[in-house]
Amino acid sequence: MPMVGSVYILAVRAFIEDDDGRVLLIKRASDSKTNASRWELPGGKIGTGESLEEALKREVKEETNLEIIPEEVMGVVEQKFPVINAAHIIIRCRAEGSVKLSHEHEGFAWVEPSDLRRYRLADWLSDFVMKLKIEEDKEDSPLGGILRFMRGVYL
């Protein structure tokens, strides 16, 4: 009997840094179907016919009221659910405006990257942060060297 392949949805996430190098985290509402009461990056699913940039701008505006300027893809991380999986594409962004949260979220924080581990992160974000930390710590890793050069030693 042939095996059925995994079904994936694509999501985009904004890694927004302020002028002091802090990262914007938003906290999901306690009644959320996924990642309830967990901290994550703004963003969400890509709609039919949307580009990555269109979806990211729409989702961030809906969730935080911020206008963003996407800059570069930082990486991709997978999140497994019982029926489907999500691939989160994390994009570094600049933002303008003041944060005003949607009803889907109950808090936000500008966090020093070294303090990320103090927050109860969504599993996918925790995995991504750990992956960045591992790559950054590898002395012979090209990605680690780039991360150290670009961001300093945050994590």
Score class of each variant (00 low, 15 high):
S51A: 09
A14C: 08
A29N: 15
R120I: 12
E72S: 09
G49T: 03
R148I: 08
A36R: 01
D18I: 05
T64A: 14
D137Q: 08
T34Q: 09
K33W: 14
T64F: 02
E53F: 03
E106C: 01
T34Y: 07
L25I: 01
I69Y: 09
G21P: 09
K57N: 12
I16A: 04
T34C: 09
L125T: 06
E59A: 03
M1W: 05
F108C: 12
R151H: 15
S32M: 03
N35D: 14
M1F: 11
R13W: 00
D18T: 10
W110D: 10
G152V: 00
Y119C: 08
F149V: 07
D127Q: 03
V73I: 08
D127F: 00
G21A: 06
K133D: 11
G43H: 05
F81E: 15
F128V: 04
G144M: 04
S102Y: 04
T34S: 13
E63N: 07
L125N: 11
E40Q: 15
I68H: 02
P142L: 03
G5V: 11
K61F: 13
L147Y: 04
V12N: 07
R58Q: 09
M74V: 01
V73E: 10
E112H: 03
M3G: 13
V129S: 05
P113Q: 03
G97Y: 06
E136K: 10
G152N: 11
V12P: 10
L155C: 07
V129E: 07
V23N: 08
E67L: 01
C93Q: 11
A36C: 03
M130D: 15
V23Y: 02
L41Y: 05
W124A: 00
H103P: 14
R13F: 00
E96G: 11
G144P: 02
L41V: 02
I9M: 12
I16W: 02
M130S: 13
V77G: 06
P82D: 12
P2D: 12
D18M: 04
H105R: 12
V23L: 05
P142M: 02
G5P: 13
I90A: 10
L121F: 00
T64P: 14
V73K: 11
R22V: 04
G47E: 15
Y119M: 08
K131V: 01
K138M: 07
A29H: 15
V7Y: 05
Y8C: 04
S114Y: 05
D18C: 07
G43V: 00
R94A: 08
R58C: 09
G152L: 01
V99R: 05
D31G: 14
Q79W: 02
M74A: 04
Y119F: 15
E63L: 01
F15S: 12
I134V: 14
D19V: 02
I26D: 11
D123T: 00
L10W: 09
T64K: 02
E104H: 06
L66F: 06
E62A: 10
V60H: 10
N65A: 12
R22W: 09
Y154E: 13
P142D: 15
F149Y: 14
P113A: 00
A11Y: 01
S126R: 10
G49D: 14
I134R: 12
A122V: 00
V76C: 03
E54S: 15
P113C: 00
E62C: 06
L24E: 13
D115K: 11
E59M: 03
P2A: 08
V111R: 12
P142S: 06
V153N: 09
D31P: 04
F81P: 13
V77C: 02
W124K: 00
H88I: 00
Y119Q: 11
V83N: 14
K61E: 13
